[in-house]
């Protein structure tokens, strides 16, 4: 038994209930921001912001699309950050859920190395030297509640549950969306516990929508090579 998210970006309205619900549940402080010529804010994930809805305006096949991508830690099935850390008191995987958890002991890690090892560029270092990111609301999940971001989502963009259930919904929705957009696909579904459905080329949504080695150091390339292991494609097998 393990858990997964399914994030259906095609029904996300960028209401950003998830962004606030995350901070609310975790008592995370707000950041001081400014309008940067877009309503997307904060500009990036941070030690205090585990979730950011990315917003991109793209003209696709002559039509304007406003693409929304609620970004967060993917809780990789074989987390490169965990391997890079090599210290289970700092980064470990919760057996029951598969959640990748960072503890206060991440303070002792080489933060740069950990961040670089993430194919999605997620972990962030705080002032105290520790690293932080989404923890799947493990406290809630262990007590039978949905993660705060999923619970608050009005449209069904955010889903959470048993991995096989999530994969089944993901593939069902993929089939439906493909009828409208041939480019629709699930992102890195075999390798992560946060499975995104996008209707168009994922790079249009966000630079790190899919695992990426662009502009990053050698650590991440090594991590990626490891991550995309040559095993059977569980998720795509269901497509």
């Amino acid at each position: 038994m393990s858990k997964s998210f399914f994030i259906d970006t095609t029904v996300c309205t960028a209401c950003r209930g998830c962004q606030v619900a995350c901070k609310q549940w975790k008592n995370l402080p707000a950041e001081i921001t400014k309008n940067r010529g877009t309503i997307e804010n904060p500009a990036d994930v941070s030690f205090n912001t585990y979730k950011v809805v990315r917003m991109r305006e793209e003209v696709i096949d002559g039509k304007l699309r406003w693409l929304f991508f609620p970004e967060q830690c993917r809780h990789c099935i074989e987390p490169p950050c965990l391997d890079t850390a090599g210290d289970k008191s700092a980064i470990f995987k919760d057996d029951a859920t598969g959640a990748v958890i960072y503890t206060a002991k991440t303070k002792g890690l080489n933060a740069k190395e950990i961040i670089e090892s993430c194919p999605y560029n997620i972990p962030r270092k705080g002032k105290n030297g520790a690293l932080a990111k989404c923890d799947m609301c493990l406290d809630r999940v262990q007590n039978g509640l949905l993660p705060a971001c999923v619970k608050t989502c009005p449209t069904g963009a955010m889903n959470f549950g048993e991995r096989d259930e999530m994969l089944a919904i993901a593939n069902k929705r993929l089939g439906e969306v493909k009828k409208i957009s041939q480019a629709a696909r699930l992102l890195d579904a075999d390798d992560v516990r946060v499975i995104y459905l996008v209707a168009y080329n994922p790079e249009l949504y966000h630079k790190f929508a899919v695992a990426s080695v662009d502009n990053l150091g050698i650590t991440r390339q090594t991590a990626l090579a490891k991550m995309f292991r040559p095993v059977k494609n569980i998720a795509s097998g269901l497509v």
């Binding site: 030690f47 008191s89 470990f92 919760d94 057996d95 029951a96 859920t97 958890i101 960072y102 503890t103 206060a104 002991k105 991440t106 705080g126 520790a130 690293l131 932080a132 923890d135 493990l138 406290d139 262990q142 007590n143 039978g144």
Partner: peptide, 18 residues
């Protein structure tokens, strides 16, 4: 509620053992 999980409280802040 699963009671078998290994976790820490106050992720990123608490220095208490797992």
């Amino acid at each position: 509620a699963t009671a078998a999980g290994i976790a820490v409280s106050g992720m990123g802040f608490d220095l208490s053992p797992v």
